[in-house]
Structures are given as C-alpha cells and as structure tokens.
C-alpha cells in the first residue's frame, strides 16, 4: 500500500478526474483535449478484446493531434444522436508509478435525449497515466476499458 498517492496528490487527481468528466458533460470538448499532454494516448477498448489480448480499439488517438481531429470531426463532419452525457466516476485509486502517477476508477456514463429520456450508455474503468506539467496534472495515457462492449447505437463523444 506504500505507493498510494499522498493525500494532497490524491486530492489533485480527484480534481483532475472531476474536471475531465465535467468538461465532457458540458460539451467543452476542446478544453477537455487540453487535459492531455502533446505526446499521449487516448483509447477506448472493449473488455472482450483486452481479455483476449487483441489490440483493436473502438477509438484510438495516439497523439494529441488525433484527439483534436476527433473533436473537430465531431464538430464539423459527423452526424450522431443528439444527446447530453453524464459521467459518474467512482473513487480513484492512485499510485506512484515509474513513469508517473497511475490512476484507475470505475465510471458510469448516462446519455439523455433532447426529450429528457435517459439510458445507461456505458460502464467500465479508466486506466490513466498522469504526470505533472507546469504545476498541473495532465494525462499521458487514458485507456478506457468498457464493459459495455456492445455499443448502444453509436459512440461519438469521448468517454
């Protein structure tokens, strides 16, 4: 247990995840992008593939420009179900690792339609690697392992 994050860092990590979820839920996707370092990995992958050691993702951005492209495609090109996201992130387990701070947490993601109908869209777990950059915690890696591998309708906005 000795490599758990010190309380102060744990609180910062919690705030980082809070900001992550809030920016997604408020559709501030460009600002959400800023939570990543320039060299980074953002990946959504199904538990089914992880368990079989299969490399295919549902969404794969292996640098920040690819994340920016995802967001600009959503803004300018893609057509998808009009919805509001609500992320509920559980307690974070943060540890000090060799390459930075590692953090994992379960999430539930609810989607609501324009008419206020809500469905549980996805559950799973975040597996992040976070470093300190200019006094702020930033994601070097955010790997989202989804239990809900059978994507409901489609997956447009990031988890």
């Amino acid at each position: 247990m000795s490599n758990l994050l010190p309380l102060e860092l744990h609180m910062q990590m919690t705030l980082l995840f809070e900001e992550y979820a809030r920016l997604l839920d408020e559709d501030r996707l460009e600002e959400w992008t800023d939570l990543f370092t320039e060299e980074c990995l953002y990946e959504i992958v199904s538990r089914e593939n992880v368990q079989q050691n299969l490399p295919l993702s549902l969404m794969l951005c292996d640098n920040k420009n690819m994340i920016r492209d995802r967001i600009s495609a959503l803004r300018q090109a893609n057509i998808y179900n009009i919805h509001t996201d609500c992320h509920v992130i559980g307690p974070i387990r943060g540890t000090v690792g060799e390459a930075g701070y590692e953090a994992s947490a379960a999430y539930s993601l609810f989607q609501s339609t324009q008419e206020g109908e809500t469905r549980l869209f996805s559950v799973g777990r975040y597996h992040a690697l976070v470093i300190e950059r200019g006094g702020l915690l930033r994601f070097v890696r955010q790997r989202v392992i989804v239990d809900t591998g059978a994507i409901l309708t489609l997956l447009a906005t990031p988890i």
């Binding site: 993702s57 549902l58 969404m59 309708t153 489609l154 447009a156």
Partner: peptide, 23 residues
C-alpha cells in the same frame, strides 16, 4: 491498420452515422 480502424465501426469517423440513420 489499428489507427485506421478509427474510420469504421460504432465509433467510426466514416461509419458512425449509420446507427443514427437506421434508428
């Protein structure tokens, strides 16, 4: 191939619209 898979499937930059159109 793994990166280009971003174009296809339920989160596909090219194909995600199909799920919406069908519904």
């Amino acid at each position: 191939r793994l990166r280009k898979a971003n174009l296809a499937g339920p989160a596909g930059l090219v194909s995600m619209e199909d799920g919406e159109a069908v519904e």
